[in-house]
Design a protein around this nucleic acid. Structure first.
Length: 745
DNA sequence: AGCACGCCGACT
DNA sequence: GTCGGCGTGCTC
């Protein structure tokens, strides 16, 4: 027998399978990991397939050394998934296969943990009699009495009654009175999140209706749902019930959450409700715990998996359901190689394994909602909050008026007043400073005008004076000098935005002397568990005002918070990214949902230089539908995803000249390629060659070639050709190729 | 990815 | 004359 093995090396040169002979008496199956001789070294590999014959010269074929486990580490469905992903991403199979295994499992770094056990080897009566006789050895007597029940006991358990039992055990074993052996032990992660009993409450009508659609699918061939419910409508309860039903049917469920550290409630609910059948995968697990959780899942002992995006690759037995909570979150998009979208993988797996998919969000992504409307997903709407609690009152403050009234600070008069009242009442407030990215945009403080690219309908980015002080469009490379006066109203207050959380904290300290505040942003969450510490400070009430970037807006539940202030809603709106409107809407809607989660009603103040922007209004009234229709039209009109594909080649080199030269070379080759393929040429809307937002990163000079493509039947071929193009060696310049890059810096 | 082989400059 | 630079090429 022979087998095809994928060697665990990610390199084009060794990407295709290698043939090995399977020695007599060795039984192997596809998906199993093996050790093989490779060159003059030993390597790990995964069996792709088996065959009776081999078309290679016998003498060149080597023998499999040994299996690494006695089961297939990658089950058949995940083998197929890895294959398809490698094909789509144009990357070696070894790379996608790595996603299917806990990283620590590779390279033999992790071992199955065993625990020593002891069991009686003689009749219980005889043991008890011996215990009586063992006058001189109380330890042996005690051990014999404990083992007299005939059951297998852990040595650690015996050790808690008898100190240092090792010598006594050794003697008993030598006399063949007891048997010592080792048993595999699983490190079940401690209940670091506690275990909250979820109060069993009766379902609302909305929840009932949603479940009536979902539950029948679980028994059959599966279904696809987009669960759209306003903040506080009880989406969690719906998919918890679906998970319960999945377990009742003897199947497994995977629940994906955007960031496990931010959803401790969910984890404790699941632990409380499902006990040890729930496996929780999060970044704080030790390598050993992670591996053991993986094995519990692989064996079918854990049938509920909760984790971040990589949990979508869990080897769940008989998969019945995948839930993607907060479906719109960008964390579902992997940020390093091989790039994948956990939502797409979930969809793929569900189709493959006849499982049901539930995407849940209060603010679904444009893509998912568009699909739901097209009929790809069944749309389940829950427009009401539980107990018919009202949505918080939202006030929009026009910051241009503040300026006219002589207020040049970051806090409006209204926010100052409300904040003071809130704190005086002993309640808590959250202030969101949604600043992102390195660069700032340029805006007129008198009329709200923002400098936009003439070709792209995207705000231009100011490149600091130490760079070249120009305004640039990150999409097409258009550059211009910043205007001295506002082209719209002629005003002189053209400003470069860039104020941060620190500034806000200073203002709050001036307004409320002596009131403790907490600040949460990239600068303050550096240390180990910096996140948790700051949040705890706020949760405990020691800090009364929490000031932070968008990390404070996600899924947090502080019942004492009655005021949420958004310092400058336009900040994310004017980022040079076609997704900025979507992100702003999501952020504002989600943050508005943070206020008034307890008994007391909440208030939200949104400060903006552009109160007339519909996105602000849609978020204030939590009107998802109108936002969607508006944004979908805008994308179609502006030819943005999902109607088009953005593609980028990034060159990086120590030498600026080399980075530029390589980018120029790529551009020429791309243009040649398009000349040779008239059908492809028609799909190309834009080719630009320019300096990216960050010109030098980690000491490397950078340059990028951007393309916008219309999606069509030839898309995949074009991507494949461009992938090849990017692979060509370019001296000391590195070339990165990306489709729909997550970031454009 | 590693690790061989292989062909040109400064050293015991 | 050799030791060693890292350019090309192969690994079932």
């Amino acid at each position: 027998m022979y087998c095809q093995v994928i060697i665990d090396i990610v390199h084009e040169n060794v990407a295709s399978p290698f043939t090995y002979r399977i020695p007599e008496e060795m039984e192997l199956i596809p998906g199993q990991r093996v050790a093989v001789p490779f060159g003059r070294r030993e390597k790990e590999g995964i069996i792709l397939g088996l065959s009776e014959t081999c078309d290679l010269d016998e003498s060149r074929v080597k023998d499999i050394l040994r299996p690494l486990e006695d089961y297939a580490a990658v089950p058949a469905e995940l083998m197929e998934l890895a294959g398809q992903m490698a094909l789509e991403a144009h990357c070696p199979l070894a790379e996608t296969l790595r996603l299917m295994l806990p990283a620590q499992m590779r390279g033999g770094r992790i071992h199955v943990k065993t625990e020593k056990t002891a069991v009686l080897n003689v009749q219980a009566e005889k043991a008890l009699a011996m215990a009586e006789a063992e006058k001189r050895s109380p330890k042996r007597a005690a051990i014999l009495r404990m083992l007299a029940d005939g059951k297998v006991h852990m040595v650690s358990e015996l050790a808690s009654a008898v100190k240092e039992p090792r010598e006594a055990l050794r003697k008993l074993a030598a006399d063949e009175i007891i048997l010592l052996s080792e048993e595999e032990s699983l490190r079940v992660p401690g209940s670091s999140f506690g275990s909250l009993q979820n109060p069993g409450f009766t379902l609302t009508a909305g929840q009932r209706e949603a479940l009536d659609e979902i539950l029948p699918c679980l028994t059959g061939k599966g279904g696809r749902f987009l669960l759209h419910g306003v903040t506080g409508s009880g989406k969690t309860e719906v998919f918890m019930a679906a998970v319960q039903e999945t377990l009742t049917l003897g199947k497994s469920a995977i629940i994906l959450v955007p960031e496990i550290a931010l959803t401790p409630q969910m984890v404790s609910w699941f632990r409380g409700r499902f006990g040890p059948v729930a496996a929780v995968i999060h970044s704080r697990l030790s390598p050993g715990e992670r591996f053991d959780e993986w094995r519990r899942i692989r064996r079918g002992e854990a049938r509920v998996v909760i984790g971040a995006r990589s949990a979508v690759f869990s080897p769940a037995r008989d998969l019945g359901l995948i839930v993607v909570d907060e479906e719109h979150e960008s964390t579902y998009m992997s940020d390093h190689h091989p790039r994948y979208d956990a939502r797409e993988v979930a969809l793929n797996r569900c189709a493959r394994e006849n499982a049901t998919l539930i995407l849940a969000s209060a603010t679904p992504s444009i893509l998912s909602f568009a699909r739901a409307r097209r009929g790809d997903y069944m749309l389940l709407e829950m427009p009401r909050r539980v107990k018919d609690r009202p949505l918080p009152e939202v006030e929009i403050v026009d910051m241009r008026e503040e300026l006219e009234n002589g207020n040049r600070t970051v806090l409006s008069a209204s926010l100052r007043r409300t904040l003071k009242e809130c704190v005086t009442r002993g309640e808590q407030a959250m202030l969101l400073m949604n600043r992102r990215g390195y660069n700032s945009f340029v805006s007129c403080r008198s009329c709200g005008y923002v400098v936009k690219c003439p070709n792209c309908d995207i705000s231009m980015t100011y490149h600091v004076a130490s760079n070249d002080g120009m305004l640039r469009c990150h999409y097409c490379g258009q550059a211009m000098r910043p205007p001295e006066t506002c082209p719209e109203c002629g005003g002189k207050y053209i400003r470069y935005f860039g104020a941060g959380t620190q500034k806000v904290e200073e203002e709050v300290a001036k307004l409320l002397p002596g009131i403790p505040t907490a600040r949460m942003d990239y600068d303050t969450t550096g240390g180990k568990d910096g996140h948790g510490k700051i949040l705890e400070e706020f949760r405990s009430g020691r800090a009364r005002v929490l000031i932070g970037t968008q990390m404070i807006a996600k899924g947090l539940d502080f019942p004492q918070v009655t005021l949420v202030g958004v310092i400058a809603a336009d900040m994310t709106l004017n980022l040079p990214d076609y997704r900025s409107r979507e992100r702003t809407f999501q952020l504002l809607t989600q943050v508005a949902g943070r206020a008034g989660r307890g008994e007391k009603p909440g208030k939200v103040i949104i400060q903006t230089y552009k109160p007339e922007d519909p996105v602000i209004g849609y978020a204030a009234s939590q009107d998802y539908r109108s936002f969607f229709e508006d944004e979908f039209r805008r994308r179609r009109r502006g030819l943005y995803p999902p109607f088009t594909l953005l593609v980028r080649f990034l060159t990086e080199s120590r030498s600026e000249e080399a980075a530029v030269r390589t980018a120029d070379q790529l551009e020429r080759e791309i243009r040649d390629m398009m000349e040779n393929h008239p059908a492809w040429q028609k799909k190309v809307l834009l080719v630009s060659n320019d300096t990216p937002g960050v010109k030098v990163l980690r000491g490397k000079n950078r340059r990028h070639v951007l393309m916008k493509l219309l999606v069509g039947p030839e898309t995949d071929e074009m991507i494949a050709a461009m992938t090849e193009l990017a692979r060509e060696p370019a001296g000391d310049t590195e070339v990165w190729f990306e489709v729909n890059p997550t970031t454009m810096i």
